[in-house]
Design a protein around this nucleic acid. Structure first.
Lengths: 346, 346
DNA sequence: CTGTTAGCGCATTCAA
DNA sequence: TTGAATGCGCTAACAG
């Protein structure tokens, strides 16, 4: 075992020499199309490669063939269950295609996002997938679009998840319909008086869910009083704050609070409890997304299931389904209402 | 705007030509050490690059300098909050060093893990970080060690998170001490009779936590009856099953059940409730990890906080702190007992 | 300080 | 089928 501590990795050249064949033959045996090299040679090459513990240099392959085999994924925050589930889907679908996933987190900053897209572009990935809403002003927005467009113009693919505001292929969740269905289900459960917790007005996801919910209620002649709509950050703590706010401004008579996503709903539940309101006895709660935690909180959270992993895998598939059509396809994935203990029939 | 749909990306050569300078000057202006090229030239190059929307080809850079700028991260399942938090830490620390993170999921299969390490090695990453316990038999184990060793021998770095069984640098959680501290705190709360839920015997994480807890109790002359220790899978459903098992075999008199991780504790809580035992009135529960859900369940879960993100960032730092010392350093991160409503003072 | 040139590891064309 | 030679985009000596 003569293993020098810090030698350099075996190269194709080394393998070829070890096997007593040419570089080209070694290359063909290890990667090129199958039916090209004599079995004897192929065997010798394979053995030599194993002996040398050869691992093809992906970067070199990428330069040589002018195309890498990676998928770049940009999320707001990988620790957020919403994004980590999507990431799981992306990874699964990418692996199935032999692609490696590189990930970066924008921390919800559009400036950072732009930097990252720029950096990721250097990888020459097959696809860049963007997910996580931004609240950017027009300048950052335009720069991002320009950057992505440049990527596309040079042969790249771009897919967005859940943000149809940008002119690229997108996988969207049917937020409007899901929220409307939820509203209907809740009315069916006997609820009549509602409050709501939303995110920033600029967030399409939030506004779609809010308007879907409102429209669903409207079908039954129910409306939400403007004072009963709180807005806060799209996070657990935002939900907590909004819950406190509702408590402070008064939601007497309100039977159920709908939060536009689960993490906010869970934050609100905590706020209500901390404020002395029992859930669901004194106030029922419903969310949106069906993150895994929704099952585990007590009471289990009524919500609208979004097939998160599927969102990720669909994004990858969408990227490769585009037969050079610059058409910005849109794939819509449906949702399912999931009634749980946080909104018992009354 | 003459943007041909599918041209190829601008190259350094293009930039140099556009700026009217040599390839080398362009390279130096864009990347090389700062104080080397005249400001006039530098400006022209920068402008040309912007005009052409140039993005350096990272793969080419990697081959040219013989070193890529990526960190490879292997997790069991990115959708699991435990791993996604670690991943967040890795990403943060890597970005701080200008490194891009590539991720892959092993789905807890040691075979898959080996394949992935092999594939990832092709990226010539600066570091390969492994996290997520395996239960593999010796063959897979040896193959993995060999593969990682080969990577190290050719200049790579390997860091493991929370699995000191392997001969590489590792970031470990002080499971033993954390569990011992928890035991002490619970005794202080007035608890005297305990049961426990662990994972498979081969899982160091589980056995360390169990023995730490037992030793902590022993300091007060308390022991857990062997019949009051259940074992199951390291998942929520495993915890549920173990909870049912304890219920079935009888845990009369037991005041608190300690589960070696939060997800199992949460599963057990459900099992107890479904079995008619109120938590914490009839039976108290404690877990380990302090995943974010722990705060949100009702009653909120007493647990031992593990700084998950820190685990990830430490791993990256550990990789680069090794000054070529083949020493397999071990960094231990401490934990904190977090008492919540699932174990009120009695 | 700038430009020329030679590789980096690999795929692939072209002859043989 | 195989091997020799060229080039991918870039960095790093090397001269000027």
């Amino acid at each position: 075992m003569n293993s020098r501590p810090s030698a350099s990795p075996a190269t194709l050249q080394d393998v070829a020499r070890e096997a007593g064949v040419s570089l080209a033959t070694a290359s063909r045996s290890l990667n090129g199309s199958v039916r090209k090299v004599h079995d004897d040679y192929r065997q010798r090459v394979l053995e030599a490669a194993a002996r040398l513990n050869y691992s093809p240099n992906l970067s070199a392959q990428a330069v040589a063939k002018g195309a890498s085999s990676t998928v770049a994924l940009l999320v707001s925050d990988i620790a957020d269950p919403y994004f980590s589930s999507i990431a799981a889907g992306v990874i699964r679908a990418a692996e199935a295609k032999g692609l490696i996933v590189t990930m970066a987190a924008t921390a919800r900053s559009s400036v950072r996002e732009l930097e990252l897209v720029r950096a990721l572009r250097g990888q020459r990935p097959q696809v860049i997938i963007l997910t996580g809403s931004r609240l950017e002003g027009p300048p950052a927005h335009d720069a991002l679009v320009a950057e992505l467009q440049a990527f596309i113009n040079t042969g790249g693919r771009v897919v967005l998840i859940s943000q149809r505001e940008l002119p690229f292929s997108t996988v969207v969740v049917d937020n409007y319909l899901g929220a409307r269905a939820l509203a209907n289900s809740l009315v069916e459960q006997g609820y009549r008086r509602f409050a709501a917790i939303g995110g920033a007005r600029a967030l399409m996801t939030s506004t779609d869910r809010l308007s879907g919910f409102a429209d669903g209620l409207a079908e039954h002649g129910i409306a939400i009083h403007p004072n009963h709509v709180a807005r806060a950050e799209f996070t657990r703590d935002g939900g907590y704050t909004a819950g406190q706010h509702l408590l402070a401004t008064g939601i007497t008579g309100v039977q159920l609070v709908f939060a536009v996503n689960d993490v906010m709903a869970i934050g609100a539940m905590s706020a209500f409890r901390d404020g002395g309101l029992a859930v669901p006895e004194s106030i029922a709660v419903a969310g949106f997304d069906d993150i895994s935690t929704a099952r585990d909180v007590t009471p289990a959270l009524t919500t609208v299931r979004v097939p998160l992993e599927e969102l990720g895998s669909r994004a990858v598939e969408l990227a490769f389904s585009e037969s050079d059509s610059p058409a910005n396809d849109v794939v819509t994935v449906g949702t399912t209402v999931v009634l749980r203990e946080s909104s018992p029939a009354i």
